[in-house]
Structures are given as C-alpha cells and as structure tokens.
Amino acid sequence: MSLHRITLKVNGSTEIVDVPGNWTLLQMLREKLALTGTKNGCASGECGACTVIMNGDAVNSCMVLAAECEGAEIITVEGLSKEGQLDALQKFMIETGGIQCGFCTPGVLLSAKALLMRNPNPSEYDIREALAGNLCRCTGYNRIITAVQKAAAVH
C-alpha cells in the first residue's frame, strides 16, 4: 500500500503524517499520532465512540479516510482542555456523573462540543438529537444530557 503524505492541524498543532491510502482518520489519530483518547467501538460508523471534530463538524473518524484530511483542522478529546483548564463540557460531565466506563466519553464530548460550537443555546431536544449517534451502554444518558445543558449555560 503506497503511503500518502498529508499535512493537517490536530488540536492546533501542524502535523505531517505518512499514511497508507486505506487508513481511516481514526487509525491515523491512534496509531500515527498516539492520540488514543479517540476510541474504536465498531469501525463502521454505528457507535459514535470515534467522534472528532473535523473543520467544525462532528464526524465519525472511522468513516473518514486519512488521505481526505489534507489541510483539515481536527479537534480530539486531547485538545479540549486548554493549559490544564478543562472545557466546561468536561467539567460538567465529571460533576454530573455522566461518565462510568468512559469508553463513549470522548465521542460524547466531541459531539456535544460541535453542537455548542454551532448552537450555543440548544434545547434539550437539540442535545438529545445531537448525541443520538453516540451509544452509551452504562449511564442511561440523562446525566450526559444534564452535563451538556450545564455547559451550554456557561458557554
């Protein structure tokens, strides 16, 4: 498999990566950039665990080819906190008990972040809809919804 050289911005820093043409963004993040916060729950676009923000939108990184990311701006869970300051979403996910096993958490955080970036005042329905593709088997979801509402309130 021939390698593609791509240049992109991940969490604000410019990265130059050589990746095989069949690799996904998820593989590139985890295996080339060691950003293992982004999780693989199905590798087929069905669980949301791999959600990252690409050019302002939440995407399933398992469904995006790495080679398509030339020039893209990516935000992963590792890029949410700034200089040790947690993002409000992280803070409220911790405080409301929206995290149990934590495997869905990075994807949930990035879907919620993308929502708040495009809609700072979402209704409860907007939040539930924005997170409908993020499966969580542990929490029962309501604490996650509350966390996003609280984060929106301080956004």
Partner: peptide, 21 residues
Amino acid sequence: VLRNDVLEKATGAAVYTDDIQ
C-alpha cells in the same frame, strides 16, 4: 464524593487495553 477515575476519562488520558503501544 467525585469519582477518582473520571478526570483521566474526561481528558482521553485513561488507558484501555487497545491504547497500549
């Protein structure tokens, strides 16, 4: 009290088996 495992989990630092290099 707040859970002692969630800061790691909220920042992507928590290590699961597939994350070990």
